[in-house]
Computed example of a mutant assay.
Amino acid sequence: MFVSYFCLTLSKDAARQPIIGFGSLLSEASARSSFPNLQNFRLARLRGYKRVMRHPASIFFQRNIARKDTREFASLSVEPCPDGNFLVAAFDIPSEELQAYHEREEEFFIALAPIEELDGSKVQEGLLCCAGTDDEYIAKHGRKNFEERYGSYGLSTIWNWQGEILPCRVYLRHCVLACSKAGEEVKEDFLVNTFLWDRKTTIKEYLQANPSIMEEEPPESLRHRYSG
């Protein structure tokens, strides 16, 4: 199923908004660290998208966990893919917290996407952090913001990266630990249905070739935030 992007508006009458988590938010504990007032946390299925570690995240540079010399500073997003199919988390947040959600996920294009309950009983739409474009980012946040958050670290693009870009080691470990807390099925689904920048190499294959990533301890100041 291909899901098109469109301009998002939320009814003022909506008290709560479903959010779709596809990385570290697959752990309820991790999700609650970002959304302490969430309700109805559950696993669901997302179709029509592919999960890829393909763009540099400014926050990794700000927190000094990016490795620029080895290009290990990629974060997760999803992009349309007709045959995509993987497990996600879904949960509801108060509508008054949506502004903070958009500010925290500033580099993404936020779309509404349909998610299926695992028992097939219902399809519901939730907010999803999708790959965007540099032009969209600059139009929304301004050139000055782009230069401060990306240009100052020697990055000329967020979404038009050319060539190899590898996962931020601490962040990838964090995501795998979070999925492990959600159960073996969730962990395995993440490993085989998440891809590197080439859209071919799975995270499972990448970790098999780079097992030291799972031994990569975050800085003490970030230990709680990046431990699943």
Rank of each mutant, 00 (worst) to 15 (best):
L10I: 12
E188T: 10
S77D: 07
Y153S: 04
G84R: 11
A31T: 01
L172T: 02
A131F: 06
R42D: 13
N40T: 07
M53W: 15
E216N: 07
A100S: 13
G163N: 04
R54V: 14
R54Q: 14
P82Q: 10
R223I: 11
F2E: 13
I93P: 03
R63V: 10
F22N: 03
S121F: 11
R67D: 15
A29K: 15
E215T: 09
F146V: 02
S4P: 15
I19R: 03
V123D: 03
F91C: 01
Y49M: 15
F195D: 01
E136I: 02
R149S: 03
P80M: 08
L177F: 10
L128K: 05
V186N: 03
G84T: 09
S95G: 03
L98N: 06
Y101T: 06
L46S: 09
S77R: 06
N40W: 10
T9G: 00
N193L: 02
S212I: 07
S33D: 15
F22Y: 14
R16A: 07
L118Q: 02
N85F: 04
L10C: 04
I19V: 15
F41T: 08
T194R: 08
T157I: 00
T194S: 14
M214Y: 05
I110V: 13
R223E: 10
A131S: 08
A74P: 05
D69S: 15
F6M: 14
I93C: 09
E184G: 04
Y171G: 02
L98S: 04
P56W: 05
N210F: 06
E125H: 13
L46W: 07
K12N: 04
A15I: 06
R47N: 12
F73R: 06
F60P: 00
A131T: 05
A139Q: 13
R143V: 02
S227D: 13
F91E: 01
W159Q: 01
S221V: 08
I19N: 03
P36Y: 09
E148V: 07
F60E: 07
L128F: 04
R32P: 03
W197E: 10
G151E: 00
C179S: 06
E103W: 10
P218W: 08
A29S: 14
L25A: 13
S4W: 11
T70L: 15
G151C: 00
I19S: 05
E184Y: 08
Q62W: 09
F146P: 01
L128D: 00
V3S: 10
E205V: 08
R45S: 11
L155S: 02
C130S: 06
L128Q: 00
Y137K: 06
F2I: 14
L112W: 13
R54K: 14
R199H: 12
Q208K: 14
R225L: 15
I158C: 01
K200Y: 09
L38E: 09
Y171Q: 04
E184S: 11
A89Q: 03
L128W: 01
F190A: 01
P114C: 06
F86D: 04
E116T: 12
D135H: 06
I158G: 00
P211D: 04
V192Y: 11
H141I: 03
I115F: 13
A14R: 02
L38C: 09
S30Q: 15
K122Q: 14
